[in-house]
């Protein structure tokens, strides 16, 4: 089923998508409509154009492919499913996602993967092909963040304060140089090839979705970032 996205109000567009009697829905000429995929069940959405903020918020049992860039807060509190973006992502990409996978071909904005978490068998994964802005993985409590830094040479592909408040989960950052001024509460080490087993299937998918050679990914080192031991929040209080 195909829906024309031009000149249609977001609420009407989302209603049309929800009510579409087809498991695969294509929307053409999207121009900034928000909340696409929020509350949609059991569908594959193929989106052409530029979806607005909060694409795939609370995504559950639904997959989204975007041919274009996306804006802010994509996959906010996403439960499961897959979002594939053939373009760049914005700020707070994957905010508090607890399941599913997001692949962004290009870059991400600020606070990517903020407050990502995991529980039981749910473990979210977010793969960004290019570079990301500051505060990557802020408050990360679980899940896997991967930044491939494609097209970025001789600089670490994240902005400042990478992993601030990180207290769970793991990041894999591909870079030919180690991070500058890493935050003291993080453990950072260069990965051996076998350390990458965990992300291998997601790299494979990334390459196949965006037509990139796997060899071009593994030609640079990866750095693995995890929170250091010790609970620094418990030590800052005095019971009164």
């Amino acid at each position: 089923m195909i829906i024309e996205g031009k000149d249609i109000y977001f609420a009407d567009l989302n209603k049309a998508i929800k009510q579409a009697d087809a498991s695969e829905v294509t929307v053409n000429n999207i121009i900034g409509q928000r909340y696409i995929g929020s509350g949609v069940q059991g569908k594959n959405l193929i989106l052409h154009g530029t979806p607005g903020n909060a694409l795939g918020a609370y995504l559950d049992n639904c997959n989204i492919t975007v041919y274009g860039n996306v804006q802010d807060a994509v996959g906010d509190t996403m439960n499961n499913g897959e979002i594939i973006v053939h373009g760049n992502g914005g700020d707070t990409l994957g905010y508090a996602m607890r399941g599913g996978v997001i692949y962004v071909k290009g870059n991400g904005g600020y606070r990517v993967g903020i407050h990502m978490k995991e529980y039981q068998e749910n473990k979210p994964v977010l793969v960004v092909g290019g570079r990301v802005g500051s505060f990557l993985g802020e408050y990360q409590a679980g899940g896997i963040l991967v930044v491939l830094g494609l097209g970025v040479d001789n600089s670490f592909p994240t902005g400042n304060y990478c992993g601030t408040g990180m207290h769970g989960g793991v990041m894999y950052i591909r870079s030919d140089v180690p991070p500058q001024n890493p935050l003291p509460h993080l453990l950072i080490r260069e990965c051996a090839r076998e350390d990458l087993t965990e992300i291998q299937p997601f790299i494979k998918n990334y390459c196949s979705y965006f037509n990139i050679l796997e060899a071009d990914i593994f030609n640079k080192p990866f750095y693995k970032i995890t929170p250091g031991g010790g609970n620094h929040y418990n030590t800052i209080y005095a019971h009164n």
Partner: peptide, 15 residues
């Protein structure tokens, strides 16, 4: 969220 890991509610909603 994971067992035994601090649950932090940030002061702002970052969106």
């Amino acid at each position: 969220i994971p067992v035994g890991v601090d649950a932090i509610s940030p002061a702002p909603h970052h969106d």
